[in-house]
Simulated scan of single mutants.
Amino acid sequence: MKLADTALEPSASTEQFTIRLSSTRRSARLARRLTAERLAAWGIPYDSEPSHAAVAVTAEMAANAITHGRLPGRDFRLWLARLPGGVRIEVADTRPERLPKAAATSPTGPDALEAETGRGLLLVAAYADKWGCQTRDAHTKTVWAEIMHPS
């Protein structure tokens, strides 16, 4: 539930899934579905709390990638890894200069409840045990989240 600078790094033997998707709303929906299906293949049932959390986090991070991290003609990448007792979700986009702000508090003001945007990272922070953002090169940034579950 906090923005973190470090996280568990999957080992070479970790089960992983990665796919590049076009920066469209349809691909954001596909990322959500693929996450649910991959987790189910890894033994995390569709209707479980960890699956619901991972799907919600993936949906938000993919939506942010296509809304705030998109450059015309450039894709985003979804990467999933099974961790001991959890899952790691990463979404990489092509706007490294647009780093997410920590979601420490909720939006305030008279229009906060009616706002259609601005609360996404609060959702990520609420569902994830840890999350953060990294720029690994000059062309991409990666937002990641880890969701742990009982084994």
Results as ranks from 00 to 15, higher is better:
Ala4Phe: 02
Asp5Glu: 14
Asp5Asn: 08
Leu8His: 07
Glu9Phe: 08
Pro10Leu: 04
Pro10Gln: 06
Ser11Thr: 15
Ala12Lys: 11
Ala12Gln: 13
Ser13Pro: 00
Thr14Leu: 02
Phe17Ser: 07
Phe17Trp: 14
Thr18Met: 07
Thr18Val: 09
Ile19Met: 12
Leu21Cys: 11
Ser22Trp: 10
Ser22Glu: 14
Ser23Phe: 05
Arg25Thr: 09
Arg26Asn: 12
Leu30Pro: 01
Ala31Arg: 05
Arg32His: 12
Arg38Gln: 15
Leu39Thr: 05
Ala40Asn: 11
Ala41Phe: 08
Ile44Cys: 10
Asp47Trp: 02
Asp47Arg: 05
Ser48Asn: 04
Pro50Gln: 07
His52Ala: 14
Ala59Gln: 10
Met61Cys: 03
Ala62Leu: 08
Ala65Gln: 06
Thr67Ser: 07
Thr67Gln: 11
Thr67Cys: 03
His68Gly: 01
His68Thr: 01
Gly69Cys: 05
Arg70Trp: 03
Leu71Phe: 06
Gly73Asn: 07
Arg77Phe: 03
Leu78Met: 07
Trp79Thr: 12
Leu80Trp: 02
Arg82Val: 00
Pro84Arg: 07
Gly86Tyr: 10
Arg88His: 04
Arg88Trp: 05
Glu90Leu: 11
Ala92His: 08
Thr94Val: 05
Pro96Asp: 04
Pro100Val: 04
Lys101Leu: 13
Lys101Gln: 14
Ala104His: 10
Thr105Arg: 13
Gly109Cys: 14
Leu113Lys: 14
Ala115Tyr: 11
Glu116Gly: 15
Gly120Thr: 10
Gly120Ile: 08
Leu121Pro: 00
Val124Ala: 04
Ala126His: 15
Tyr127Asn: 01
Ala128Arg: 01
Cys133Thr: 10
Cys133Lys: 02
Gln134Glu: 15
Gln134Lys: 10
Arg136Phe: 13
Ala138Arg: 12
Ala138Gly: 02
Ala138Trp: 06
Ala138Thr: 11
Thr140Arg: 15
Thr140Asp: 10
Lys141Gln: 15
Thr142Tyr: 03
Ala145Gln: 09
Glu146Met: 07
Glu146Lys: 02
Ile147Asp: 03
Ile147Ala: 05
His149Asp: 08
Pro150Trp: 09
Ser151Glu: 15
